[in-house]
Nucleic acid binder design. Structure first.
Lengths: 351, 351
DNA sequence: GGCGGGACGGCAAGCGGTTGCCACATGTTG
DNA sequence: CAACATGTGGCAACCGCTTGCCGTCCCGCC
């Protein structure tokens, strides 16, 4: 294994030039006579020379890596963000370094601090860390937060209030006025924003939770919902909506006939479950990409915009989990009985 | 930003010792007088000193990073592998560097070659690269392949033949003898193994495909299947099974009453769709973990076992996509009509 | 009292690149 | 023909940390 890779010195000796010339032949085209450079390149190729990235980066201090912290790799919400971020990083000649927090604030902080000195910048996607902890990181390296606004730290978010507005409008079209919000993690910035927007747009709304932002969290919510039935639910994310609907269905409620459900994120499974979810889709890919380009720009000396977060538009994907409000909502059949409900065929979602 | 981080020299000056002493105070406890070390640690903490990882690694030649190449981060199949790998890496004090190939062999090779000089070892999960290309990589760095056997390269795989055996046995229990295999990517090693195992265990089996290992690939397969109906299907992976079932249902077939479907991987969505999938589950987490520990062992000088791949057991998770063979299979109602079929309630899966 | 040896700290040589500065050769200009 | 600009290559000093080797000091023992 690893015969010790050839270095510029090996190449230099073989080509009969100085090491610095070899270095320049690669790093500074034009600085070196074309014929010489060509010869060096040939010799280097023969020797199978590749610049040692660590060594290259030591003098410049730049590692050409940017860190991306996510709360949970398994959460499909992040996959598009990761893709977008990776695209942008690759295009800029950077490598992405993923840090998985596994939904734990301390693990997140630990992992990030470990990665910090090795990266030129950091993108924090849905961080569970405190604002001040994030600011502390931002003092050491360029940081961009995603899906969250932190004072004095540049951030990229989707238009949550607008998403809520679309959801509310869609539900209102179907006759739903009072909406029950199923809250996600308290540490989630998006959670707060969404609830605030909802309360403003639909003052009759109420809030349940918080629940874990997962299928089981949604199932838990179903139990609470049974005690205080509702015709329309806005769930913190798709996973919760899925859990909610499953449990509700098991309890005998029919979705969407008895309860309309709208959630957030538009993960892949949203289209696969029955009924397919009506959900607010954030421009995940674009957000990941934007976050990385922003971090890179700051690392290159750009002055971060201080005029608040960069807001990208979201859209509502209407599928089968929402429907016209049923007439007789006075005494819901579910929550008391246990009869199996019917389910509804999946319909194709938008794009 | 980044006031230039303090170095050992800064710490050394502040503590009134030589830089080498600072270095040893951290790296070689005991080598330095306890009181001195304590003082150095205190001063370092005050200054906010953190060892620059690049600089630390240059002399030793070890980067303390290990690369993990996956075909597609978005594929839920990899998330458990990633978790297992990350666990093992973190425990050993290593950082994981993910490389996403996006299902493209050339992109994979490119990304891997870029990462290669920066890592101490490489884990290739379901690589689409050729055996010889992998062997070439393995000559430069410790490499372990996952879900695939490559001669002369250590590998970790799940027991595919045993998985197929369990699937076949389960289907046989329900009266299914002839099984249609829905093939995945031709470059997939697992695909070949599975088909071979199936043909051996159930000689009456037939093979359709190859299809893309995705929901849409499964939908495509449904069209072919309609032309040559079958009572039992073994699909290359869960995503294909989901696509297959959706399209089949849309065409009027009832799953599992008309067609039983078994697939591979047991991704999260397998439990969420309707009907929930009966699927062969590989010990993904353990595989990721094992692959990393193996790579690390080799990097530490262990001699890789040459007696073939490390095989981890798989198991069958029985859910709702399989059922007793229906009696009158002579003229299937589906494939010709277009009537909507009924769907079936989801049932809890085993774990 | 002399001496061997262990504990501890410092010196300096790398690790593999990058880069400022200089030297030299050649070409250009007045 | 001198003065000077330009092109091209080499020298050597880093970047921040590790580590082999050496010197000093102190202790214990004969």
């Amino acid at each position: 294994m690893a015969e010790r890779a050839p270095t510029i010195y090996d190449v230099a000796r073989a080509a009969g030039v100085a090491a610095s010339t070899v270095s320049r032949a690669f790093a500074r085209p034009g600085r070196v006579n074309y014929a010489t450079a060509e010869r060096i390149r040939r010799v280097a190729a023969e020797l199978g020379y590749r610049a040692h990235p660590l060594a290259r980066e030591l003098p410049s201090g730049r590692t050409h890596m940017i860190g991306l912290g996510v709360a949970d790799i398994g959460n499909p919400f992040y996959t598009e963000i990761i893709r977008g971020a990776q695209d942008a990083a690759t295009e800029a000649g950077y490598t992405l370094m993923l840090t998985d927090a596994r939904e734990s604030g301390t693990r997140e902080q630990e992992g990030l601090e470990r990665a910090l000195p090795a990266v030129d910048g950091l993108v924090l996607a849905t961080s569970r860390m405190s604002d001040s902890a994030i600011r502390a990181l931002a003092k050491q390296r360029p940081v961009v937060v995603l899906n969250r606004a932190v004072a004095d730290v540049p951030s990229v978010i989707s238009d949550n209030p607008d998403g809520v507005r679309r959801a509310v409008a869609h539900l209102a079209d179907s006759g739903h006025r009072d909406i029950t919000y199923l809250a996600g993690p308290e540490a989630s910035w998006a959670d707060g924003i969404r609830w605030r927007a909802l309360r403003e747009l639909a003052p009759g709304s109420r809030r349940l939770g918080p629940y874990a932002p997962s299928v089981s969290g949604g199932a838990e919510a179903a139990a609470d919902l049974a005690r205080q039935p509702a015709g329309a639910v806005l769930a913190y994310n798709d996973a919760m909506a899925i859990g909610l609907i499953r449990r509700l269905t098991a309890m005998g409620a029919r979705v969407p006939r008895d309860v309309s459900v709208v959630s957030f994120d538009n993960i892949e499974a949203a289209e696969l479950v029955t009924p397919a979810l009506t959900t607010v889709a954030a421009p995940l890919r674009a957000m990941g990409r934007t976050a990385v380009t922003t971090v890179l720009a700051i690392a290159d000396g750009a002055v971060p915009r201080t005029t608040g977060p960069l807001v990208l538009p979201s859209r509502l994907v209407v599928r089968a989990s929402t429907a016209q409000r049923s007439r007789n909502r006075t005494s819901p059949a579910w929550g008391t009985t246990n009869a199996p409900g019917s389910s509804r065929r999946t319909e194709a979602g938008s794009r």
